[in-house]
Write a protein that binds this DNA or RNA. Structure first.
Lengths: 201, 201
DNA sequence: TTTGCATGTGATCAATGATTACATTTTGCC
DNA sequence: GGCAAAATGTAATCATTGATCACATGCAAA
């Protein structure tokens, strides 16, 4: 799980990484509000002041936790789309399912990571990627003609909303399987639309 | 703005309500994390211990703030649907727009209220209401045949997701008008669907 | 080796959530 | 009207926390 040691062998070893890891497990198990710098320091076996050598304040520590989680999440999502690479619509679906899976498996960390994503450039990048996917799908004639930005927004909002519901327990306890079924179902609704055929049909 | 005095004329007047109101404005202007019981007490002009006569702990105070906000929000939503009462699909749209309007106008309070909604019975009630609406729409032949629960989920998730994006600033600063346009657009996408006509057409 | 910088420590501060013992007002009851 | 009891507010106090400071210690390069 250790990634890399900037300089091997300091006073403590590599405290920065240790702190992030410890904080991550605390977030995963007890949630962000259970994180106190002192507690993290305690668990890491250092003094209460030590963390401040590596992070300006608590916020910065949590930001680091969020950033690292995002990297891990991102990787899982890439893996999920890899199997269906080249088929935009399937990529889209796979992405949604991967999202939802994360929400079920790591609700607390998921919440932290995405709340702090905010104006993160990675978010914009991911949005652009989605847009490209949609345009590819349209070029293939796989979807109807409509503002790609709106489509990305609609699909993104639906996925994100579903995740929100899951992590906040609005849907009760759901297993990964159930969540995937719900997500797939919702995406199908989006795919087929609600209204009966318009009139040009 | 004052609603009712449980028993008129106590030592302070009606501290409980005052505390909720003060806390509400703090949440609206600075967010939940800016709320400290002492600060609320200070602004209300009472001692730091006084609030604990009315709320077991900070959580309970914030819960009360959330509950009261929910009531206000709920009323606004009812108002929004009143104009188009009887036309399920329009009701649905009006509801979505009302949601989004709230997110734009009261992002911080909206966040607090909905995060604490959790297993709130009102949430379930609202879900059932939506389900009834969908079934009415289906009976009228206004929408396609599909699992009403999935439809409610899809639409609800989309709306909630859009609100999330708004309050977290993922869409940048948006005006009420812009937000309404986005929401209407997204709902249209959901209405028409993404896929070209299936084949039974 | 010695000098200097990165890193960790203990002491300390102000703010906070919460509890306790005590004061005061209000209310219900005679 | 007046009085006992419950309701409400206060000051004092405690442990925890985020954060900073002066100081200690180990590493690394000259």
């Amino acid at each position: 799980m250790a990634t890399k040691a900037p300089r091997p062998g300091y006073h403590h070893g590599d405290l920065r990484r240790t702190l992030i890891e410890v904080a991550t497990t605390v977030v995963e198990t007890e949630g962000e509000e259970a994180v106190s710098v002192r507690e993290i320091a305690r668990r890491a076996g250092v003094s209460a002041a030590a963390p401040f050598r590596h992070f300006r304040d608590k916020e910065e520590l949590l930001d680091a936790v969020a950033a690292e989680a995002m990297v891990r999440f991102r990787k899982l999502m890439d893996d999920a789309t890899r199997e269906v690479l080249g088929e935009p619509l399937l990529e889209f679906r796979a992405l949604g399912l991967a999202y939802v899976r994360l929400a079920v498996r790591h609700p607390k960390l998921f919440t932290l990571a995405f709340r702090r994503a905010g104006a993160d450039p990675a978010g914009v990048e991911s949005m652009l990627e989605s847009r490209a996917r949609i345009e590819r799908a349209r070029a293939q004639g796989a979807i109807l003609d409509a503002d790609p930005d709106l489509i990305v927004l609609a699909a993104g909002a639906m996925t994100q909303g579903l995740c929100r519901m899951i992590v906040e327990g609005q849907l009760g306890k759901v297993t990964v399987k159930e969540a995937e079924r719900l997500c797939a179902g919702a995406l199908d609704v989006l795919g087929h639309g609600l209204l009966p055929r318009p009139d040009d049909c």
